[in-house]
Design a protein around this nucleic acid. Structure first.
Length: 286
DNA sequence: CATCAACCCTGAGAGC
DNA sequence: TGCTCTCAGGGTTGAT
């Protein structure tokens, strides 16, 4: 399920190759850059994949626009067009293909944008949770999002203040995209493990040092995820191998790499949650 | 404001 | 083998 590192990986692959930051391209070569291509046709195979505007208007308005920039904001893939902005949220199972225009449709293809140069971009989404928005103003979509984890203005002091102002369990808070953008279940569990913080810990009981440690842990797991081109844990997302480096996520019953105890699983905020009860105590003894 | 349940979906995996 | 059942997962919405 694409979180920040997975979306960043896809965004990199959709930019022109010069923007690729990593030497090991692998599957990324199958998704050449799309910056500079002009949309010549649009086909919606599953109407509910289009969040805004209605599909007919979406198809009419997006045609003839050039893709001028590929960005990422939180878990959104952002395509800047000549006049509008195209936001793509992959949710659970979405993926993007770039291929020759004459390619055969595949099962679960939902939206197809044909380019004037004879290629096409395909939005494929088995579970149909993903959405596309075509908007005039990017703020329409991302104004509700919290800060980017790598934003330099997000200092440890700032993050501590954000945690102090809330009194929620830390895990659901980190998953809340209006609090901080880009974290999903995998990277939240991994970050809390690195920081040694229990998922149910109330945010406003964390000290300044713990806040700084948590922010640093968040950045570390995200950076490692990006370096490994994301995690391929669902059968849909391909290319990354961060799933081989999880400390706790989906490792219930395995040994904690730090203390050797057993990783436990519980449900927190309707989400499967993996943690080490020894390294992540709810009530620190200190 | 915080918490919780339901909803949207499919396919993988378990159980029979 | 093949059927049915359960479940995961992000984000939104509505109820408490």
């Amino acid at each position: 399920m694409p979180e920040l590192p997975e979306v960043e990986t896809i965004a990199c692959s959709l930019r022109n190759p010069v923007a690729l930051p990593f030497k090991e391209l692998g599957a990324l070569n199958e998704r050449p850059g799309i910056v500079g291509r002009t949309i010549a046709s649009a086909m919606v195979l599953w109407e509910r994949s289009i969040a805004q505007p209605v599909p007919a208007d979406f198809c009419r308005d997006i045609i003839h626009q050039e893709i001028t920039q590929v960005l990422r904001r939180g878990k959104y893939l952002v395509l800047r067009l000549t006049h509008d902005w195209l936001f793509i949220h992959l949710r659970m199972s979405g993926d993007i293909r770039v291929e020759p225009l004459a390619s055969e449709n595949q099962v679960h293809d939902r939206v197809i944008l044909g380019f004037a140069d004879g290629t096409r971009l395909v939005f494929n989404d088995p579970r149909k949770f993903g959405r596309l928005w075509l908007v005039k103003d990017p703020l329409d979509v991302w104004c509700t999002l919290g800060p980017e984890p790598f934003d330099e203005e997000l200092t440890a002091e700032c993050f501590y203040g954000m945690l102090q102002r809330r009194s929620r369990s830390i895990k659901p808070l980190l998953l809340d995209q209006s609090f901080i953008a880009g974290l999903g279940n995998i990277y939240t569990d991994e970050a809390l493990f690195l920081a040694g913080i229990h998922p149910l810990r109330k945010s406003n009981t964390l000290g300044p040092g713990q806040a700084a440690g948590l922010l640093s842990a968040i950045r570390q797991v995200l950076r490692e995820g990006i370096m490994r081109n994301g995690a391929s844990i669902d059968w849909v997302y391909r290319g990354g191998d961060f799933q081989n480096y999880f400390n706790v996520y989906q490792r219930t019953g395995s040994q904690c790499p730090r203390c050797g105890g057993l990783i436990e699983r519980s449900v927190v905020g309707q989400r499967g949650t993996h943690y080490c009860p020894v390294c992540q105590p709810l009530d620190p003894v200190n």
